[in-house]
């Protein structure tokens, strides 16, 4: 009987077969999520337009008033690595919205009744959104180059800066997956995410050097994850002391993942 094929696969799902099963399910979910992103380009547009506006605003409107003479590079070279981090930070909010939509639409409920790898739902979401983030980051880099951004180190370091930002982005995707699963409602997920991410992006070294900030803010603004990652990306693009920033950024990424991945898994279990 054909009905037994499913049962057979189920019996086989131990050891290496199980790993293949998880990979296959993750791939199926990833593909489903990417199809959604392509069919509803709203999220793409949202995550691209907004940083482009910031690039133009800070490059041409505020840039003239911001002094970065201490850094030894033109403001646009200071700005762009920060914009990379800002882009992924705001962009990751959409992950929470998507996750909450899946709870609301009953998709998670259906997934739960299927003999699939549970981890595939979260893995497939974060992998698909990491792919989206990569595309957005490449587009934003192109916009940067168009408005005068230049790499002061070398191409390999520049690629390294994108990678460190993507690594950080992946941690944020788990943060907002957890938020979306906990709130179970796309509007609330969006509303709750902005106040978390906005202070991190604005009270940071993304747009202006922290040396211009009041002393009570400087400590936070220097060592919080968005700033640290912006500093790491900036060092990789512009030169200067690099390793310490890169290590601090990786430490933040790992720390956030260690806290938020279990939190997301826990919320996933309780989401339906």
């Amino acid at each position: 009987m054909e009905a037994n094929t499913a049962v057979e696969v189920g019996r086989l799902s131990r050891g290496p077969a199980r790993v293949i099963g998880v990979a296959r399910d993750t791939l199926a979910i990833t593909r489903r999520n990417l199809t959604g992103l392509i069919r509803v380009p709203r999220f793409f547009v949202f995550t691209i337009i907004q940083p482009i506006i910031f690039v133009l605003l800070f490059r041409y409107v505020f840039g003239g008033a911001i002094s970065v003479t201490t850094t030894g590079v033109p403001y646009v070279d200071y700005l762009m690595p920060g914009i990379f981090v800002q882009t992924v930070a705001f962009g990751s909010i959409t992950t929470g919205i998507s996750m909450a939509t899946d709870v609301q639409s009953g998709m998670l409920e259906r997934f739960r009744s299927l003999p699939m790898a549970r981890s595939a739902v979260l893995a497939g979401r974060t992998v698909a959104d990491l792919a989206r983030t990569t595309v957005v980051l490449v587009i934003i880099s192109a916009v940067g180059f168009a408005v005068g951004f230049r790499i002061n180190t070398n191409v390999a370091s520049f690629v390294g800066s994108l990678l460190i930002v993507l690594l950080f982005a992946y941690a944020l995707l788990w943060v907002f997956s957890a938020v979306g699963l906990a709130l179970k409602d796309p509007e609330s997920a969006q509303a709750a995410s902005f106040p978390v991410i906005a202070p991190l992006v604005f009270a940071s070294s993304v747009f202006v050097p922290v040396s211009t900030m009041p002393s009570w803010l400087r400590g936070f603004a220097t060592y919080q994850p968005v700033s640290v990652t912006a500093s790491a990306a900036r060092a990789l693009c512009n030169g200067g002391p690099t390793l310490s920033w890169v290590l601090q950024s990786i430490a933040w990424t790992i720390g956030i993942l260690l806290v938020c991945a279990p939190l997301a898994v826990w919320s996933y279990r309780r989401a339906v």
Binding site: A6, V9, S105, E109, R110, S113, P115, M116
Partner: peptide, 28 residues
């Protein structure tokens, strides 16, 4: 399972929805 509220992906086509569920039900 066909739950009380239709659990389908609004962005996928009818065919894609069914194939997705089929694959996650572990059929080739």
């Amino acid at each position: 399972l066909a739950g009380q509220s239709a659990s389908v992906d609004a962005n996928l086509t009818g065919l894609e929805n069914l194939v997705l569920v089929g694959m996650l039900a572990q059929i080739p």
